[in-house]
Write a protein that binds this DNA or RNA. Structure first.
Lengths: 205, 205
DNA sequence: CCGAAACCTGAGTATTGAGTCATGTTTCAT
DNA sequence: ATGAAACATGACTCAATACTCAGGTTTCGG
């Protein structure tokens, strides 16, 4: 059980009914794992919640690990779409950075269960977890390099920057969007963006 | 089981032998949970590894959750000591920031099991996990405020900055110190520090 | 409308491992 | 030296739950 993703994916459902059932299970699993955590969430609770028989689960997923993997992929797709849309017509990279950060925080607050699901994957399947971040990092890095070439940002190590910036979003998101449901994300995003823009060093002299 | 820390701590060992045994168990648990993860680590493996009987475990810890809690506290103490030492005689905050970042990365690479143990606590006992970060954030925040008063850093939101900076360390640490065991941490720390210092905005015009 | 493929079921099996306890050994203050 | 408290043991109990399977129902192209 250790880590392993292994074995070919189960064949996709062939009928409309099958697809609907699969989604019902996926949604129930997201709610269950998102609120109780991977260990506490049981297949029987998930299937009950989805209003299907126990055995039905195994028509679409090989195991509990398997459904978590699928949820991580789903989360990645949704977040990516959300961010792409948010920064689509930003005039430059710095503005894209600001909008992306804000959009990320909003997304976390609106999808607390998905956020937790991804975090659990760290231990259930390190490979998927790593890939999740690496994919974001890769496109982040590309964006930074392009912006640097255009002279929109100061030159610097794009790989390290990409991970550092993801780190900011991740931790600030946890603290202010996940743990704190009151504070204005607009203000938090502005404050964090100010740091990203200018750093800590005192201006002028 | 949900979250709960609850119930008075078990009485400390009264004899030298007892204290030694408790430490043996703690060390074994750290190795086991650190390498296989909380779910996969079993009490029987931990006690076997510590070369004590199964029942001995319950003389010192109420449950598997309990031992994890203790490990998180231990990790916090060790990391705090390490960082305090590293930045002790830095001439100013910016330099302290550079040294602290570097020291953190070194610490992660040298203590991969403890790092993972803390991450697992997120799900096993959210309260301890939160406190772990909140404690670091609080002292980070205080340091930033003092530096701001001294004019060593530009003014800004100390709370957000503290979490953002922790986020950088956390994510950069995961990527370059935990997942990558080859790369020079000196160089990574410098690159990240450059971002923290100056931000992304192009200098001059 | 037919029948074959797809889908669904939930009681039952099999495993796993946390936590207990009755009994035995070591420590250490007096 | 001694006995009471502290420490140690590991076989056993017991609950939990992931996953199976033999037999039923629904779907849908032709």
């Amino acid at each position: 059980m250790s880590d392993a993703n292994s074995s070919p994916p189960l064949p996709a459902p062939k009928t409309r009914r099958g697809e609907r059932t699969r989604q019902k299970i996926l949604n129930a699993a997201q709610r269950e794992i998102g609120s109780k955590g991977f260990a506490e969430a049981s297949i029987s609770t998930i299937t009950a919640e989805a209003a299907v028989g126990q055995g039905t689960f195994y028509l679409y997923f090989r195991s509990k690990e398997d459904v978590l993997r699928e949820l991580v992929l789903r989360m990645g797709r949704r977040l990516r779409r959300h961010l792409t849309l948010a920064i689509a017509d930003a005039p430059n990279r710095l503005e894209a950075e600001r909008r992306g950060l804000r959009a990320f925080l909003e997304f976390v607050r609106a999808n607390t269960d998905l956020y937790r699901v991804v975090a659990e994957a760290q231990f259930v399947d390190p490979t998927v977890f790593k890939r999740y971040y690496q994919d974001f990092a890769a496109s982040y890095r590309a964006g930074l390099l392009a912006a640097e070439a255009r002279g929109e940002i100061a030159p610097g190590d794009a790989e390290v920057r990409a991970w550092a910036l993801m780190g900011i979003s991740d931790m600030v998101g946890r603290r202010f969007a996940l743990w704190d449901s009151e504070v204005s994300l607009r203000k938090i995003a502005e404050a964090a963006h100010a740091l990203i823009l200018e750093g800590l060093a005192p201006r002028g002299r």
